[in-house]
């Protein structure tokens, strides 16, 4: 049976929620295929207490310590994790899908010659096969992926945020601590961190949020949605393409790389609903979406849907408000 090793990512002394997604996947895998669960944390002696949050959640907790591992560094983390996994024979290494997981998962796969699948949001066992499920084409379709010889060989997966439900366990955890020897030539230096500038309006505080996306098509359509926001006493927010196009500032971005909102009304205009966006809005009280593609993923989380071009519906709505 495989050892299921979950990478625990932390930032400024807090464990990232994505690591609990990874743990939730690990429990699901265990229920299908068995195996013991381990957590792997890279940290410093000063920050070692972080593991307290994981007690009772895994069979083993590996703490690998060095002052240089206090914060993520791509080359150091890669080296230490690689050395750790090299000692193992058959494992499944699980990471939550984060910015850093983008760097770690595939580079570990190359260093260790293992297969890798990113952004998994489901898993099923059919006979003796395991299907890994993930989105394709920006969330419009799902695909079932198989890994060759998955049973015999180690492999690496990353887990899409919020796709497996995390439930607390009560396992007696064994803590294994060791110091890491780090002696490599670095090509990358981390200079520091910065918060993106925020504007005057905090979209997370608004009860009514009007979201715009690619379907707005042109900046010239912006005044009509601005007027709608005003009439509904709400604020404008947007999906990534609306920010990239320069229609709205970065502090209005909703989704995994922006903000998570829970307004009373989320009105999604011309947003197809890539999973990175859906993660940020799906807990809104009421979701209404307007999109001309009937299969747009945004409808799968919407209470009400309108299959139409937003530039036709919004003017009609404005006339009546």
């Amino acid at each position: 049976m495989k050892e299921i090793i979950v990478f625990i990512e932390h930032r400024f002394s807090e464990i990232l929620n994505n690591s609990y997604d990874a743990l939730a996947f690990a429990y699901k895998w265990q229920s299908l295929r068995g195996g013991e669960i381990s957590c792997l944390i890279l940290t410093s002696e000063e920050k070692r207490e972080i593991f307290n949050n994981l007690k009772d959640l895994a069979n083993k907790i590996y703490l690998i310590k060095n002052k240089l591992l206090e914060n993520y560094h791509p080359e150091l983390y890669l080296k230490v994790i690689k050395d750790f996994l090299k000692e193992k024979e058959n494992y499944l290494f699980v990471l939550g899908q984060t910015s850093n997981a983008y760097e770690l998962a595939s580079s570990l796969a190359i260093e260790l010659s293992t297969p890798v699948i990113t952004d998994i949001n489901g898993i099923e066992k059919v006979n003796n096969e395991i299907n890994f499920i993930r989105y394709f084409y920006g969330g419009k379709i799902c695909g079932k992926i198989n890994i060759l010889d998955f049973n015999k060989k180690p492999f690496i997966v990353t887990i899409q945020s919020g796709s497996f439900k995390f439930e607390k366990r009560d396992i007696k955890s064994e803590i294994i601590e060791r110091e890491a020897n780090i002696d490599i030539e670095k090509n990358i230096e981390i200079l520091g961190y910065e918060k993106e500038e925020t504007g005057e309006i905090d979209i997370t505080k608004s009860e009514i949020v009007i979201g715009i996306g690619r379907g707005l098509r042109d900046k010239k359509n912006l005044p009509m949605v601005e007027e709608l926001a005003k009439k509904l006493k709400g604020v404008l927010a947007g999906s990534r393409p609306a920010i990239d196009a320069g229609w709205l500032t970065k502090d209005r971005q909703v989704g995994s790389s922006g903000k998570t909102i829970k307004p009373k009304l989320y009105l999604a205009l011309g947003i197809s609903g890539a999973f990175q966006h859906i993660v940020g809005i799906k807990n809104s009280d009421l979701i209404i979406a307007i999109n001309k593609d009937p299969n747009a993923p945004i409808f799968s989380v919407s209470h009400y849907g309108i299959v139409e071009d937003l530039t036709k519906v919004v003017p009609a709505l404005l006339k009546k408000l």
Partner: peptide
């Protein structure tokens, strides 16, 4: 400058 979660930026120097 590199994008992390939740509007955080990581600054790096790379060879």
């Amino acid at each position: 400058e590199r994008e992390l979660e939740g509007g955080l930026i990581e600054k790096r120097k790379i060879k």
